[in-house]
Design a protein around this nucleic acid. Structure first.
Length: 591
RNA sequence: GGGGUCGUAGUUAAGUCGGUUAUAACGCCGGCCUGUCACGCCGGAGGCCGUGGGUUCGAGUCCCAUCGACCCCGCCA
């Protein structure tokens, strides 16, 4: 064991030293960020998770330490004792928090050596993600990613403190559970003691938290891992963390109040930011109509306008035909369209085709008409009405998509974000929260040929819509709400069904057979019959919240040990093959 | 399942129309240097051009396959 550590303790973190410490004897421990050997004096930038302090080895002040310091290389682990001194005049480093001072070392111990790291642990060079993930423990030494994880800790702590203040009880729910239908693909875990049987890892603790309401815990929360075996994206990992909660005897508005308080607390303690409350609300219908998506980015305009009524009788066949087949024509307007280069403009049809749009019409508005491939097919009156509805001025650029409502909204909803990003229309460091309410209870699935729950099958319908459950399920609104931040869904929840009769009706609307329902959640229906209080809840994607707060481009930058797009871990090389003995024990066959 | 971008020293990149010895910067190693802070100066080492096959007199470069990383569509109640 190191003599130094048994003899004396670390007294300060590197990044905490300030001019007020001058004159004090301090003991620091950390990693060698950089070494600058001037032949005589040697400088070392000593780094720990709080930052960097310059420590100085002077041959005249401490020959022993100076000699030892010659051995120091990148990432060596050091313990130093010395005196905090003011830097010589003109030698301050304003880019360091500790740049006013330095530590004149009188004793050094090299606690450990290090191989030369495979990449520089500075901020200057971008390292490929393959290399970063393989040496994740080194990547995690780098400042920006360490900052992200420290922010994550602050947010998690703020969440726990706030929720405890609000009377919430933290309760753990099982990871080894039962496969749930109507959702994402489950990760399965074979049961050794029950050959041929499988647990499923939870996609969310949904049923357990509702059972906790039945049990009377009243306010539950958990910061908990959830698992979904689906393909990954920049903002999606197969295991992710939710801030999960459930409350009894509350209305939708009560819950929204509590969550707005939570967000305010998170942003205050995480970033020192004061949010403006309450957050604006949009119904699902408004969101789709104005932004084309249920997760609108409201940091900029470019809203969608419906032109179906204007163009349904147009001479332009594509538009008229789409309208006659029940489709729609919508448009967005970009002020001062010249900001978009010819080349960027040419790429846009390809972009919207990703979302199924067969074309993208455009029009440049002039003093007297349009410059546009479709201009000659339109009457003066149609052009005038479009200009008016789009509130268009000369120089503006209008984009039109005509197709089924889904394609039109997808294409334009994504195009508006694409253009805004391209042109830098989004003010950085702004946080636009919006509640989306009144989601439809069901969506018709073409692949399954039946209605599916939009949120999940335990969501309560809006009470006045209950009579429509079986007759017109497509018209039923749910008491469900999402919280959207800067175009990302960061959380979603609902008031739940607490009456077993309503729950049975919803299962009927979903065309689930009694046997199916019984087998899958008979236990839950039973529980509903033992005095279930009215309740509701919500769950937040912690990773996504941190991602937005940190300005990270990928969810992987806010998770300590993330998976690649193929759901592998480059560090541990998981997943890996199991031995024959393991498989046999689990009664699994080798393919 | 589909579309796209990428893969060259430890790292980040360049590499022209297919041409002879594959460049640079940083890092690394050695030497010099007492005030630097991405220290500086001098010298040096370091390559399965992702892998396999093909075309060619000749392939880092062209073609095919394959592996891997990333972005997107589908998917993700």
């Amino acid at each position: 064991m190191s003599e130094f550590i048994t003899k004396e303790k670390r007294t300060h973190y590197c990044g905490d030293l300030r001019i007020s410490h001058v004159g004090e004897t301090v003991t620091l421990m950390g990693w060698t960020h950089r070494r600058r050997d001037h032949g005589g004096v040697i400088f070392v930038d000593l780094r720990d998770r709080t930052g960097i302090a310059q420590v100085v080895f002077n041959p005249e002040k401490s020959p022993m330490a100076h000699t030892e310091a010659h051995k120091i290389r990148s990432e060596y682990v050091l313990a130093v004792r010395g005196t905090v001194i003011t830097r010589l005049e003109g030698m301050e480093n304003p880019s360091l928090k500790t740049g006013q001072i330095e530590v004149m070392v009188d004793e050094l111990e090299i606690l450990n050596e290090s191989k030369t790291p495979p990449f520089m642990l500075d901020e200057e060079t971008e390292i490929s993600e393959t290399v970063r993930l393989k040496y994740r423990y080194l990547d995690l030494r780098r400042r920006h990613i360490q900052r992200n994880l420290l922010l994550r800790d602050k947010v998690a702590t703020a969440t726990r403190n706030y929720l405890h203040d609000q009377g919430f009880v933290e309760i753990e729910t099982p990871f080894l559970g039962k496969s749930t239908p109507e959702g994402a693909r489950d990760y399965l875990v074979p049961s050794r003691v029950n050959p041929g049987m499988f647990y499923a890892l939870p996609q969310s603790p949904q049923l357990f938290k509702q059972l906790l309401m039945v049990s009377g815990f009243d306010r539950y929360y958990q910061i908990v891992k959830c698992f979904r075996d689906e393909d990954l994206r920049a903002d999606r990992q197969p295991e992710f963390t939710q801030i999960d909660m459930e409350l009894s005897f509350i209305s939708e508005d009560d819950l929204i109040d509590i969550i707005e308080g939570l967000m305010a607390r998170i942003f205050k303690e995480g970033m020192g930011l004061d949010l403006t409350l309450p957050f604006p609300r949009l119904t699902y219908g408004e969101a789709i109509s104005r932004y084309g998506r249920d997760n609108p980015d409201r940091r900029f305009g470019l809203e969608l306008k419906d032109l179906t009524d204007v163009l349904s009788t147009s001479q332009l066949k594509v538009f008229a035909e789409v309208a006659s087949r029940g489709g729609m024509i919508k448009a967005i307007k970009l002020e001062d369209g010249k900001r978009l280069s010819r080349k960027d403009l040419d790429l846009l049809p390809g972009y919207v085709s990703d979302f199924g749009a067969k074309g993208l019409a455009w029009a440049r508005v002039n003093e007297d008409g349009w410059t546009s491939p479709i201009f000659k097919f339109l009457t003066a009156e149609e052009v005038a009405r479009i200009n008016e509805r789009m509130d268009a001025s000369p120089g503006d650029l209008i984009f039109f998509v005509a197709d089924t409502p889904k394609v039109v909204n997808d294409a334009l909803g994504n195009l508006r974000v694409h253009i805004a990003e391209k042109l830098g229309l989004i003010t950085p460091d702004t946080y636009a929260f919006t509640w989306i309410t009144e989601f439809p209870m069901f969506e018709y699935s073409e692949t399954e040929k039946r209605f599916m729950a939009t949120h999940h099958p335990f969501t309560s319908p809006v009470l006045e819509d209950v009579p429509l459950l079986l007759s017109e399920p497509g018209k039923v609104r749910a008491q469900a709400y999402d919280l959207v931040l800067n175009g990302s869904e960061i959380g979603g929840g609902s008031i739940r069904i607490h009456k077993s009769a309503v729950q049975s009706t919803v299962f009927k609307a979903l065309a689930l057979s009694d046997e199916d329902v019984r087998a899958k959640f008979g236990f839950f229906l039973d529980a509903l019959e033992y005095g279930t209080p009215p309740h509701g809840g919500i769950a937040f994607g912690l990773d996504r919240i941190i991602m937005i707060m940190a300005g990270a481009e990928s969810i992987r930058d806010v998770i300590a040990f993330p998976k690649t797009q193929k759901a592998t871990c480059l560090l541990t090389e998981a997943p890996s093959a199991a031995s024959l003995a393991q498989l046999m024990e689990l009664s699994l066959k080798v393919v």
